[in-house]
């Protein structure tokens, strides 16, 4: 067992070690570079540090003593079978559920932030977006500007253009004027992703953003997500110079991190720098696909998904991981 693969340790000290260690080790031949997207810098700051978090609904405790960290510039994947507490974890981080333990967002305890600060720093996408009325797609995207707009202000022209740009990024620009309710579920998810782009928050919490998407769009949206958290999207390049949303609380200082629950482990292995495996509300392991060895990951994934095989597949010098049921 490699030391970066933690077995349900849940201790603070171990995680501090993790966060201070440089993310990317050298590529030796035995290690699998699962992600095409290598971390941009050797040192990336911890965006979210969760220590011994427990949460639940009412008296029933769903999450027990979960600890992990999410670093900026990385996608952290939450994997686990249905009902293991993935959504509960995200909802606790949004302060929608009572929790115990500590959560530090960019060094500040979550519970000390005001609701508005939280909204500026965290962008949350629920499994199904709760937009129940007919409104144009572009208006849905423009909702993303609400945390930076004052109460009575209207989105500016620059913000409308940014919203159109975000729609173009997800491939929905021809639907901008169309009713959101007439979109397919997958298109709705892409539209909400566009809203996340304009929100420009430092922590992205996504609850199964890929569940309704077809194969190409799954990969496209994960690539987009990677671009968003790496700050490669040009739509924000001008946002800090424009007068209406200069806000020093935002991502000017911090990069972005994403915490994503996924049902597709293949997708997770390909795009996530860090995998947090949950089973029955307990964190069983934290994997780093770029660092950990194949057998270790296979063991860890088998623990939550039952017997599986993990194989590496090379094409044009690029290694991919393939997950198969054990025969």
């Amino acid at each position: 067992m490699l030391n970066s693969t933690q077995r349900n340790s849940g201790t603070d000290t171990a995680h501090r070690q993790l966060s201070s260690s440089p993310f990317h080790a050298d590529h030796s031949s035995t290690r699998v570079s699962a992600s095409r997207y290598d971390a941009p810098a050797a040192e990336s700051h911890t965006c979210l540090q969760v220590s011994s978090l427990s949460a639940g609904y009412g008296r029933s405790q769903i999450l027990k003593d979960v600890s992990f960290c999410a670093k900026q510039g990385e996608i952290s994947g939450l994997l686990g079978p249905n009902g293991c507490g993935k959504t509960t974890l995200l909802r606790a981080l949004c302060r929608q559920l009572p929790f115990t333990g500590s959560c530090l967002l960019n060094g500040r305890p979550l519970e000390q932030m005001t609701a508005r600060q939280l909204a500026k720093q965290i962008s949350y996408i629920p499994q199904r977006s709760g937009i129940a009325i007919s409104i144009p797609v572009i208006d849905v995207v423009l909702m993303g500007f609400n945390p930076v707009l004052s109460l009575l202000a209207q989105p500016s022209r620059a913000q409308k253009e940014k919203a159109l740009k975000a729609l173009r990024a997800v491939g929905l620009e021809s639907y901008a004027g169309q009713d959101y309710q007439t979109l397919s579920e997958g298109q709705k998810q892409l539209c909400i992703l566009a809203r996340t782009i304009v929100e420009d928050a430092s922590l992205l919490l996504l609850d199964e953003p890929e569940s309704s998407l077809d194969f190409p769009h799954r990969h496209r949206s994960m690539e987009l997500l990677t671009e968003i958290i790496r700050g490669q999207d040009s739509s924000h390049a001008d946002s800090h110079t424009s007068a209406e949303d200069t806000s020093n609380e935002r991502t000017a200082f911090y990069g972005k991190a994403a915490l994503v629950t996924l049902h597709d482990p293949q997708l997770a292995l390909k795009y996530c720098s860090r995998l947090i495996l949950l089973k029955n509300g307990v964190c069983t392991a934290i994997l780093q696909p770029a660092k950990d060895s194949l057998p270790d990951m296979e063991d860890a994934l088998s623990e939550i998904y039952g017997p599986i095989r993990l194989r590496a597949f090379e094409e044009k010098g690029c290694l991919s991981l393939i997950l198969l049921p054990r025969v």
Binding site: C94, A119, K120, S123, Y124, S129, G130, I131, P147
Partner: peptide, 13 residues
């Protein structure tokens, strides 16, 4: 009109 949790994370008190 948006789901309550979502609206809150969009900065609506």
């Amino acid at each position: 009109s948006v789901d309550e949790a979502e609206a809150r994370m969009l900065g609506v008190p």
